[in-house]
Write a protein that binds this DNA or RNA. Structure first.
Lengths: 251, 251
DNA sequence: CGTTGGCTTGAGTCAGATCAATAGACGTGG
DNA sequence: CCACGTCTATTGATCTGACTCAAGCCAACG
């Protein structure tokens, strides 16, 4: 957070200056010289919906999501899967300092990302402390998210899970990149696009498809949300939704 | 991991040179000059069993665990709690770059830790890249643990959870600090001390005390483990225990 | 020796899983 | 255009693993 003030508005390397997420993510914290260096080792890559970007246990990549949605998941031998994170534009992919990924990364929508050369990135990490700081900050944020989800998976009921998911998604969507949005600065009546399928919601929330579907209709019948269709909903009663999510505050 | 090779065996600052966990944790990666600087801003603190070290939402501290066991937990408004991590000697406490802790840290046994001045630590972080690298590495390890636990909480049955817990604990115990032990290098017949109560196991595994107890006796009756008493068990059939844990490999 | 706290065990209940059927959206090809 | 298969989501009926409630055990301790 303190670094953001060091941000410099002078001319930028061509590729980055036109980038949609330039002011966010890692890039936002970098000085021109660092950004220039980063640009030198990056290239855009595209993925189709459903395509696997990284497989659990195989070498990680380093990349920024430019557009599209992805999920990170972990699997058990018998096929059960748990989604451990959703990735949005400006999110960073890749486990710095680890030689194999602990998750499978899969594109949900069509995805564009800005991929970095591994060696080059680790080299930059050493020589640009501000980048290292930024990567650490991102890692801490991911950790915090993971732990919040542990609380959800270990303690919350099905309905609380679904409600929490919708609120988090709304927050992330309202956010739209400019990080650190006020916790409860959500306006009632907000239209929400759910970018993942019911099956993926189930894998994310530790439930079955059927239970997700049932709890969604329950929230609708209780007047907390309204449906346009299965994938796009409107938050009607925000206060009640927060209460249904279980944490009372901070959502 | 590559940094470890930069480790220097020359004379050390007095306090650190006598420290039980000197060669591990953050300290192990540091050069003498950095370690000396770290030593300058650290002092030992003691906590009694059950004592709260940090409260969720309040300012974090920075410290290394020297001896004893602690848990990190997150709570819901109505009192439900989820333990998100167990802390062992050599573990690092504190969310670098965040101004409030996202977890409550509580001593389980009597605890000694080596606490660092916050300002001083962040200052060191900037001026000693090797320390920053080390903190990032630690954060990534914590993230990986959190995600493995998400898989457990979201997908595994009660028995799988308990079996996984015992195996992880055994690994950590055999480990005893010298990190990166071979995954399945556990010898059958290993005596295991469970440092936490059934209630804490329940809060860690997302179960109730009763279910933990029942699954423990089930594992005993099935001959996978043997009890000395509730808190100290022996791993009898390691292969079956791994299978019961559900991941098949990597444990 | 009574009390207290941690653990186990039993009996009954319920939230969520499983199994199964249906409906709508979407293409594809005749 | 319609018939068909596929895929996703919803809904219903039933089942079950874990929770709840309750009792009992044992060791520690005043």
């Amino acid at each position: 957070m303190s670094i953001q003030s060091a941000f410099n508005l002078a001319p930028l390397p061509s590729a980055c200056s036109r980038c949609a997420i330039r002011s966010q993510s890692l890039c936002g914290a970098l000085t021109d010289v660092a950004l220039s260096a980063l640009n030198g080792i990056s290239r855009h890559r595209h993925f189709a919906p459903g395509q696997i970007v990284v497989t659990e246990g195989e070498p990680a990549i380093f990349a920024n999501v430019v557009s599209g949605i992805l999920v990170e998941k972990k699997g058990l031998a018998d096929g059960r899967e748990q989604i451990v994170a959703m990735l949005f534009p400006a999110d960073f992919i890749g486990d710095a300092q680890r030689d194999s990924s602990d998750t499978t990364v899969q594109a949900v929508t069509a995805v564009t990302m800005c991929a970095f050369d591994r060696q080059g990135f680790e080299h930059l990490l050493v020589h640009h402390p501000v980048l290292a700081h930024c990567v650490l900050d991102h890692a801490m944020a991911r950790l915090e998210n993971a732990r919040e989800w542990m609380l959800l998976l270990g303690q919350k009921s099905a309905e609380e899970r679904v409600a929490t998911f919708l609120l988090r998604l709304a927050l992330r969507q309202a956010d739209a990149g400019c990080r650190h949005v006020a916790p409860d600065m959500l306006e009632p009546g907000l239209e929400l696009e759910i970018p993942i399928s019911r099956a993926q919601m189930a894998a994310y929330l530790g439930l079955t498809i059927e239970t997700v579907s049932r709890r969604m209709t329950a929230l609708r019948d209780a007047g907390l949300v309204a449906f346009r269709d299965a994938r796009s909903i409107r938050l009607v009663n925000l206060e009640a939704l927060r209460k249904a999510a279980g944490d009372q505050d901070r959502n």
